[in-house]
């Protein structure tokens, strides 16, 4: 009897360490990274909420005719962006005006969209749901649909202790899933952490030197962006007339400025720029080398052009490919829920 009771108490002790799906999960900040901007105290992560967010992310129920999900334009295998499409297409193949952003490391982002129009991650999903070229729907009607759906009733009950979907619960669940999409295990990261047996090749190392000298003032490590808005000398596309940040602030000094995007997984997030005008990294290099238009508010760092020899461009691209995080791209936790 004594032995049995000891065994039971050990079992019970071990049992308390098993995470329930409602237990709060601490968001892990990779070593050497800044603290995230997102306030997790207002939306503490739990497995049930993350899973609900993932279910929503992959569900076309969000669009008017139930054809388009978040994942339609943000594929996990291509760093959560829409590869091969310069401008992303939504419902009934309608074409938007911008290239979809890579949804990675968003816990650190102070704003969202190419022009920073969205001030909080929770509110981001409202834009594509309502946009006539994307999901062409209304968040209130999405919530109605979820409240009539048995599988969502049980998912909301598990996540929120209440089967009723509300705008707040819905948006916070999406945020939870998006917040877990962290990429921090590229070859670059492994080299920086000094992992045994991992080193840049000569070419990559030379590319890294080029990068630090010529790119890193805007694409600041380790997130590879400083979250500023810059005019990077792109000519105006007269079919779009997209003024960028100026459309948000109404201020002419922001004309043609767009968010500096992170370069993590840049190998897989083609095409490039806010309108996806460059299909390959080499075209991006050529743009900074000799393709820029001298707008009045061209970023200071770009005045005088980034002149790289052909070899230097090859080296820089070799370095940029070390920002690919294969483990991230193939992570089951981020793919279509089973």
């Amino acid at each position: 009897m004594l032995i049995a009771s000891v065994a039971i108490s050990i079992y019970a002790c071990a049992n308390t360490k098993v995470l329930t799906t409602q237990e709060v999960i601490t968001f892990e900040v990779p070593d050497g990274w800044p603290q995230p901007i997102y306030d997790f105290t207002k939306n503490p992560l739990t497995e049930a909420k993350i899973e609900l967010g993932r279910k929503i992310f992959y569900d076309p129920i969000l669009s008017r005719d139930s054809t388009i999900s978040c994942a339609s334009c943000h594929l996990s295998y291509t760093a959560f962006t829409h590869t091969d499409h310069d401008l992303s297409h939504g419902i009934e193949d309608r074409i938007g005006t911008r290239n979809s952003s890579a949804l990675t490391n968003l816990a650190w982002s102070p704003y969202f969209m190419w022009d920073g129009a969205i001030n909080h991650l929770d509110m981001q999903a409202l834009a594509p749901i309502a946009h006539p070229d994307e999901m062409d729907f209304d968040v209130a009607l999405v919530i109605d649909r979820l409240n009539r759906n048995e599988s969502y009733k049980s998912a909301f009950a598990e996540a929120w202790g209440n089967e009723t979907a509300t705008g707040e619960r819905f948006l916070k669940s999406i945020s939870q899933f998006i917040l877990t999409i962290v990429t921090s295990n590229s070859k670059y990261d492994q080299v920086m952490r000094g992992e045994v047996g991992i080193a840049f090749t000569d070419k990559e190392q030379k590319g890294y030197e080029q990068f630090k000298a010529k790119c890193a003032s805007c694409h600041v490590e380790p997130l590879f962006t400083d979250y500023s808005f810059q005019n990077n000398g792109l000519s105006i596309d007269p079919t779009l007339n997209d003024n960028g940040r100026m459309m948000v602030t109404g201020n002419e000094v922001d004309s043609l400025k767009f968010k500096v995007p992170s370069l993590r997984n840049v190998e897989f997030s083609d095409p490039y720029m806010h309108d996806g005008r460059f299909r390959r990294l080499k075209f991006v290099m050529r743009h900074y080398g000799y393709g820029m238009v001298e707008h009045d508010n061209l970023a200071d760092q770009l005045k005088g052009k980034i002149d790289l020899s052909k070899n230097e461009r090859v080296e820089l691209i070799a370095f940029l490919k070390t920002l690919t995080d294969k483990e991230f791209l193939l992570n089951d936790k981020f793919s279509f829920p089973k």
Binding site: L121, M123, G167, E168
Partner: peptide, 24 residues
Amino acid sequence: TSVSGAMGGDLDPTKGMFWTWNTG
């Protein structure tokens, strides 16, 4: 409150009183 993320009750963004394309 306008920059603090998703809220419930009367501030729930399903109430038709929230801009989707330019947060607020």
